[in-house]
Write a protein that binds this DNA or RNA. Structure first.
Length: 602
RNA sequence: GCCACCCUAGCUCAGCAGGUAGAGCAAGCGCCUUGUAAGCGCUGGGUCGUCGGUUCGAAUCCGACGGGUGGCUCCA
C-alpha cells in the first residue's frame, strides 16, 4: 500500500524541491542519531513518498523518547545553518573516510566493482569516483542533490514518525537494522495537512470501523487471519456477491462451485506443491492419502474442463467462482481483512483458443473496470508484470503473451507501469490498482495469462481440423479477495456505505413507546419494498436514538411521533444531518429505491 | 519468519516506585414518554492473554508461548 501524495502538485520543480528537502532532512537526522550514538553504523537513508527514512545499526533499541531527543538535536543542526558540500572522492579515499562504517564500505565496494549503481540496480559499470556530501561534521556517501544549507529546512515542518525494523539491503538473511521514518514539508501548514491526513487514515481503519459497526471479527483462540462475518458485514458481502454474480452472467460467464480440498496428486500436477508448498496448509491424511486444503481454484476448474471432450465451437468457456482458499501467510504479514489466511477469490478461468485470448483479455479488463466503477471507484492504473526468475515456459511464449497484455492495456487507454519480474511462475499478468477516497492505491484486479496449466494437465479441444489442440487459459480475479475488497470499501466510504450497500438503510425512530406499533407497520411496508430497516425500540430518548443511528452511519433516520402517526408519514433525516421533513411512506420508498438503483450515496 | 512495541470487564482506557483491581460507554432492571447527535438512578460483569520463574506476596519484575500493532521480507 502506497500513501497518496496529498500535495499532488504535479509540478516537477516542486517535486525536485521536496526530494531535496526530504533527502537533506534524512542527513540531518542521521547526524543527530550519530551524535547520540557515536558508535552507530549508517546504512541507507533515502527520501520516500511523503517523507524519508534512515537505517541504522545501533547498540540498543530506540524508544519513542529517543525520537524527541533526536528531533531536538535536529533543530539545533538546522539552526546552525551548515552548508551541504558535495565533492567526488576516489575509491581509496572513500574507504578511508568510512573506515568505521561497514555498510558504507559494502556499498563503496559494490559501486566500485559495478555490482550495483547508486540506485541499487545491478549490472552497472564500475566507477572510480563517488560522490559524498558533508554538512557540519556529518558526511555521507550520497549522489544528492541536497538543499544548499541546513537552515533551508523548516524546523517546524518535520516530524519523526516511527521506528521499525528493516533488513540490510532488504534481505532477510542480512542483519536487522533500526529504521526511523520521518516526514518533512515545505511549511508547517503542509505538515499539519499531512498529519491530519494520517489521522483520517486512522479514523477510517477498517479494523476499528469493523468493530464499531459490528461487521466482522477475528478470534485469537480460534486461529489468526481467519475472518468471522457478523450479520451486518455478511449482509454487505451478500449484496456484493449477488451483484457480482448477476454481472458475470450478463458478461457471458457461467458460475461454478468446486470442493475445498483435493488430493496431493492434483497439487503435484498443478505445480503448486513445487512452487508454493511453504504457503499451503499442511496435508491431512484421509485413508492413507494426503489431501490439501486449496490455495487456489484453478485445478478444480481444470478438472471440470476435462470432464468431457471439448470442441472449438464451445470455446471460450468462462467459469467464475467465489472460491474460498487458504494460504499459510507468515504471522508478521497478517493485517486485518487486508491480509488473511482464509479468503474468497472472485476467481474465474477462461479456456479459449490461442487466437481468442487477446480479445478475452481486453474484455476482462473492460469488465473489471465496469465492475469497480459500480462501487464508486474512478481512478485506475495498470501494472504489467513480466517473467520472474523462477518460471516455467519458453521465453518466446512469455514475450508473445506480454505483447498481448500490452496491447490490451493500450486498447483500454489505461496508464501503466512495468513490474519487472513480477509475474506468476506460469505466466505474465496485468494488475489493476484503484485509488480510494484518500488517494491511496490498492491492488484489486489481477489478469493472468496462463499457458502452463493447460500443458501440465494436457488440456485439449478438437479444432476445426479434427485434431486436438491445446487451449490457452486466462486466470483472473477482479475484486481480488472479497475480504480485502470489503476492507477497502469500509475505508473508502469511512463506513458510510452508499444506500445500496448499507446493511441497515433506514432506522425507524419512535419518539415514545406509543409510536412503536406504527413504526413496526412502517417497517413491514418498507421491507416489502426491499428496504433494510430496523426499529429502535430501546428505552432511549429520541435524541439518543438519532445519535445511535448516526454513529452506525445509517443513511436514513425516520422519526415517528404523534404527527407522523396522524398523517401516516415519516420525518426523514439523512446521515449528512439534512432534515427533509415529513414524507409519505411511498414518497420515501421512491426516494430510497432510486438511491439504491443509482448506487448513490443517499 | 525477523526487529521494536503492546495485550486489564463486551468496547475505550486508568491502575507503572510489587501488597490479590477501577472509570466511562455498552448490557440488565426501574423511573421518565420524550421532536432531530448521549434524561436520571440502581445492578450485574474481570482466574488482569496463557504457562512457567523470581518473591512472604506479581496485573505490576523475568522467560517462553499465543494474539495484535508498526515496519522488513513474502504475497500463486
Amino acid at each position: 500500500m502506497k500513501e497518496g501524495n496529498i500535495l499532488a502538485s504535479g509540478n516537477g520543480n516542486h517535486d525536485e524541491q521536496l526530494y531535496k528537502l526530504r533527502h537533506s532532512t534524512a542527513h540531518v537526522m542521521a547526524e543527530a542519531v550519530l551524535d547520540m550514538f557515536p558508535e552507530g553504523k549508517l546504512a541507507f537513508g533515502p527520501p520516500i513518498e511523503n517523507g524519508f527514512y534512515y537505517d541504522f545499526d545501533l547498540p540498543r533499541a530506540l524508544t519513542p523518547e529517543d525520537l524527541e531527543e533526536i528531533e531536538a538535536r535536529m533543530k539545533e543542526i538546522i539552526k546552525g545553518d551548515y552548508a551541504f558540500e558535495q565533492r567526488d572522492v576516489d575509491v581509496a579515499e572513500a574507504k578511508r573516510m568510512f573506515a568505521g562504517q561497514p555498510y558504507k564500505i559494502d556499498q563503496i565496494e559494490k559501486l566500485a566493482s559495478g555490482e550495483e549503481d547508486e540506485h541499487g540496480e545491478s549490472g552497472a559499470r564500475p566507477v572510480s569516483h563517488m560522490s559524498i556530501y558533508t554538512h557540519d561534521h556529518f558526511t555521507d556517501l550520497c549522489r544528492g542533490p541536497h538543499v544548499e544549507r541546513t537552515g533551508q529546512i523548516p524546523d517546524n515542518a518535520f516530524k519523526l514518525l516511527n521506528i521499525a525494523g528493516a533488513y540490510w539491503r532488504g534481505d532477510e538473511n542480512q542483519p536487522m537494522l533500526q529504521r526511523i521514518y520521518g516526514t518533512v514539508w515545505p511549511s508547517r501548514k503542509d505538515l499539519k495537512k499531512y498529519l491530519a491526513w494520517l489521522e483520517e487514515v486512522e479514523k477510517r481503519d477498517h479494523r476499528k470501523l469493523g468493530k464499531e459497526l459490528d461487521l466482522f471479527s477475528f478470534h485469537e483462540d480460534a486461529g489468526a487471519g481467519l475472518v468471522y462475518w457478523h450479520p451486518k458485514g455478511a449482509r454487505i458481502r451478500a449484496i456484493i456477491e449477488d451483484f457480482w454474480r448477476q454481472e458475470h452472467y450478463k458478461g457471458g460467464y457461467d458460475v461454478v462451485y468446486s470442493p475445498h480440498i483435493g488430493r496431493s496428486r492434483l497439487w503435484e500436477r498443478s505445480g503448486h506443491l513445487d512452487f508454493y508448498a511453504d504457503a499451503m496448509y499442511s496435508p491431512m491424511d484421509i485413508d492413507g492419502i494426503d489431501y490439501f486444503i486449496k490455495p487456489m481454484n484453478c485445478p478444480f476448474h481444470i478438472k471440470m474442463y476435462q470432464s468431457k471432450r471439448r470442441s472449438y465451437r464451445e470455446l471460450p468457456l468462462r467459469w467464475a467462482e467465489l472460491g474460498t482458499v487458504y494460504r499459510y501467510e507468515r504471522s508478521g504479514v497478517l493485517h486485518g481483512l487486508m491480509r488473511v489466511r482464509g479468503f474468497t477469490q472472485d476467481d474465474a478461468h477462461i479456456f479459449c483458443t490461442p487466437d481468442q485470448v487477446e480479445d478475452e483479455i481486453v474484455e476482462v479488463l473492460r469488465f473489471s473496470l465496469r465492475l469497480l466503477e459500480a462501487f464508486g471507484f474512478e481512478d485506475f492504473k495498470a501494472y504489467l508484470a513480466t517473467r520472474p526468475e523462477s518460471a516455467v515456459g519458453e521465453p518466446a511464449r512469455w514475450d508473445q503473451a506480454i505483447e498481448a497484455l500490452k496491447r490490451a492495456i493500450a486498447e483500454e487507454g489505461l496508464p501503466y507501469e512495468i513490474d519487472e519480474g513480477g509475474g506468476a511462475f506460469y505466466g505474465p499478468k496485468i494488475d489493476l490498482k484503484l485509488r480510494d477516497a484518500l488517494g491511496r492505491e490498492w491492488q484489486t484486479t489481477t489478469i493472468q495469462f496462463d499457458f502452463n496449466m493447460a500443458d501440465r494437465f494436457e488440456l485439449s479441444y478438437i479444432g476445426p481440423d479434427g485434431f486436438e489442440h491445446r487451449p490457452y487459459m486466462v486466470h483472473r480475479a477482479l475484486l481480488g479477495s472479497i475480504e480485502r475488497f470489503f476492507g477497502i470499501l469500509v475505508e473508502h466510504f469511512a463506513g458510510a456505505f452508499p444506500v445500496w450497500l448499507a446493511p441497515v438503510q433506514a432506522a425507524l425512530i419512535p419518539i415514545a413507546d406509543r409510536h412503536i406499533d406504527y413504526a413496526r407497520q412502517v417497517a413491514a411496508q418498507l421491507r416489502q419494498a426491499d428496504l433494510r430497516v430496523e426499529v429502535d425500540e430501546s428505552g432511549d430518548r429520541m435524541q439518543a436514538k438519532i445519535r445511535a443511528a448516526q454513529l452506525q452511519k445509517v443513511p436514513y433516520m425516520l422519526v415517528i411521533g404523534d404527527r407522523e402517526v396522524e398523517s401516516e408519514a415519516v420525518a426523514v433525516r439523512l446521515r449528512n444531518e439534512k432534515n427533509l421533513g415529513a414524507q409519505s411512506i411511498s414518497e420515501f420508498v421512491a426516494m430510497a429505491q432510486e438511491a439504491v438503483a443509482e448506487k448513490r450515496d443517499l
